[in-house]
Design a protein around this nucleic acid. Sequence first.
DNA 1: CCTGGTTGGTACAGTCAGTGCAGTATTGAC
DNA 2: GTCAATACTGCACTGACTGTACCAACCAGG
Lengths: 205, 205
Amino acid sequence: MADNTNDERPVGTRELQRLETRRTLAEHAIRLFGERGFDQTTVDEIAAAAGVSTRTFFLHFPTKAAAAFPDHGERVALFIGRLADGAPPVNPMLHLRSVLLAGFDTTSPSRLTRSRLLAQVPELRDEDARTDRDYEVAIATFLGRHWGDEPEAALRANAIANAVIGVVRATLIAAGEQGIDARAVTAEILGRMLGTPFDEPLHSM
Amino acid sequence: MADNTNDERPVGTRELQRLETRRTLAEHAIRLFGERGFDQTTVDEIAAAAGVSTRTFFLHFPTKAAAAFPDHGERVALFIGRLADGAPPVNPMLHLRSVLLAGFDTTSPSRLTRSRLLAQVPELRDEDARTDRDYEVAIATFLGRHWGDEPEAALRANAIANAVIGVVRATLIAAGEQGIDARAVTAEILGRMLGTPFDEPLHSM
DNA sequence: CCTGGTTGGTACAGTCAGTGCAGTATTGAC
DNA sequence: GTCAATACTGCACTGACTGTACCAACCAGG
């Protein structure tokens, strides 16, 4: 066993070929979804366009829709890393807000592709909502670390996570349109939602 | 043509039989989902348990999952009616909050069934999120009536709708558990989220 | 080298959700 | 009583996804 203390990719011909196949599949899937729509594209067609068998498609992606978001795993990992980064924040809600807004600042090409695809292919929004569950879990876990895991605190963490993700998803889908400053709207709404300190009780209801 | 000025149900033997078939299908679907899980139940089994053909199932429900929420349409209609009820509210956000909380007060048996089923059968949560889109549209439309339909106002309405539905969904799923006052948690979070007036600009970001 | 286990991909058969269509039988309006 | 509307059925089909056996290229170890 090689002394791989760090988790370097063991880059061999095999691994490279596999990643290339995966990349090609996703590329053609996104292209075809955009050209014809999601329902008008079959997995057979995607596989054929990528030059592999249909069965191979499902060795790389669990569902047809998953091919539209090939870097989902990495993005979630990045988000979790950012949430856990640095010293424990004084106000977790403000930390959460700044991490969420940081996602708007990094203009990765894949984010633009994703926004455009979601705005263009409505059938993919359901799948998007499904994958967003990973972010919800990440946020709820993060908040749970600060609020404890009593049932009511957990429920609150869950509800906040749902709400926050809802805001970000809505704005990210619209982010492709002209003349909309999605980041500003997100910042404003999150500011109102998360600005009040949730660590102190609220009795004026 | 009879002078049906009001929209009374034309109750005939046929209509009754149809409603009964639909009810039976939903009843067995919910039972089987609870007993074996969603993926372990086939539409064939549901139809057989209800004593009809498989094809008939799809005359009553568009998807397998839809049978788990047979009264979804009525509930959405009720919600929309409550939103539009009365004079135009002074503060639409507060009106929205009170309508949402009213949903907790009416302890309909179907709501309890739904909560229990969602807590028990995780595969149905995706479908739940999908059907919740109808509520999102209703809320966004309602807010749009007050805020106008400029792109940024529409985006804000959409984002708020997403957030609010996220909170309610999270709490409703947990509502079946013991010792959790889901309504109180929802009221508190919505109070913080919607309490500040969104009609005035916020400059302290 | 070479040899043998690992692994990316294939072929094939199968399950299940969902649709289109042609047909039957009961119902209800005139 | 007749005839159209309609609740339901049977059948054939598409398309997503899975299990399994198999091939072939790769990448050790000696």
